[in-house]
């Protein structure tokens, strides 16, 4: 296996490293100065989040270093864990056991295998077409008709969100963009940095000056100030990163805006699902953040749209 030390990747990860150092320093200073208990709790959570970011960035860097294979393995694992969190929350019945087994151990791994082999034609229809008809068929064979449509729809939705949509991120490796060959890792890093920074900046803007709630019944933490400030700054950041991508600065601005808006949509939808299920987080795997699905909810919506736009406009 050849390690990928593309200079652009190194620069970009250098930037991420710098941000983490700054965030950790600010966190340490804030902890010294916090006097009120409520503020202390927020800062403790902030520092936990920053610590987790160190770990997540390291894992992500390692996966990109090893090229397409590493990214497929990382996102495959994320899909698996996200699916696990999702299906734990969704009430399935005893008769769905075998269907769930197929979902976890056949459909999801096959989906990622197709991404790995760059078989776009099959990958793009495996879950939307084949799994779509397979899941309800297998469930009907199991014979339990209680809330049948609801159960089938919930499993299909989980496959689409946790496996199919997420796998569009490592699928960026299979795009053949003229003049941009062999740089899928750069495109993936661009997507993840813009998407996650959009989350972070929306959180920061929201905490600093958030007042008007966007959808208080769905997510009390999402405010117009956070949304506008976060999307604007993350789009600006994405524009400034045009040199990593095959896009011109203006194209990069448009793509970043799309990534931010889709990411916001993903986060909002996942919040609605959590609210409906009566939980705050999907899991407790990442300290300060919640579960895997809480962290990648924005990727779920941003990755497929970003991939398809890039594919339509930038590949022959």
């Amino acid at each position: 296996m050849k390690l990928n030390f593309d200079p652009q990747l190194v620069w970009l990860f250098g930037g991420v490293l710098g941000l983490l150092v700054v965030a950790s320093t600010i966190g340490a200073i804030l902890r010294r100065t916090a006097k009120v208990d409520a503020a202390r709790a927020v800062i403790e959570n902030l520092n936990a989040r920053t610590r987790a970011w160190w770990g997540m960035s390291a894992i992500f860097a390692l996966s990109l270093l090893t090229g397409g294979m590493g990214a497929v393995l990382l996102f495959g694992a994320l899909s698996f864990l996200a699916l696990r969190e999702y299906l734990t929350l969704v009430p399935t019945r005893r008769a769905d056991h075998r269907t769930l087994f197929w979902t976890f151990f056949v459909i999801t791994p096959l989906n990622y295998y197709l991404v790995y082999t760059h078989w776009y034609g099959f990958f793009s229809i495996l879950i939307p077409v084949f799994a779509f008809v397979f899941v309800p068929t297998r469930m009907a064979l199991a014979g339990d008709t209680e809330q049948f449509l609801e159960r089938a729809a919930k499993i299909q939705f989980g496959l689409m969100i946790c496996a199919y949509c997420v796998s569009y991120a490592p699928a960026l490796f299979l795009l053949d963009i003229p003049g941009y060959e062999g740089r899928g890792a750069n495109l993936l890093l661009y997507l993840v940095v813009v998407d996650q920074m959009s989350d972070v900046l929306q959180y920061v803007w929201g905490k600093l000056m958030g007042k008007h709630k966007i959808a208080p019944q769905v997510s009390p933490n999402k405010t117009w100030e956070g949304f506008l400030g976060g999307v604007a700054t993350a789009t600006a950041l994405g524009t400034a990163l045009w040199w990593v991508t095959p896009f011109t600065p203006w194209e990069s601005a448009g793509m970043s805006l799309v990534i931010c808006l889709m990411g916001f949509g993903g986060g909002l939808v996942m919040s609605a699902i959590k609210r409906d299920a009566g939980v705050k987080d999907f899991g407790a795997m990442i300290e300060g953040h919640g579960g895997i699905l809480d962290r990648i909810d924005s990727i779920c919506f941003a990755a497929p749209v970003f991939f398809q736009l890039t594919r339509y406009f930038f590949t022959p």
């Binding site: 698996f80 734990t88 087994f101 976890f104």
Partner: peptide, 8 residues
């Protein structure tokens, strides 16, 4: 059942 499904 013999095969487990990895829920939490």
């Amino acid at each position: 059942e013999v095969l487990p499904v990895p829920l939490l």
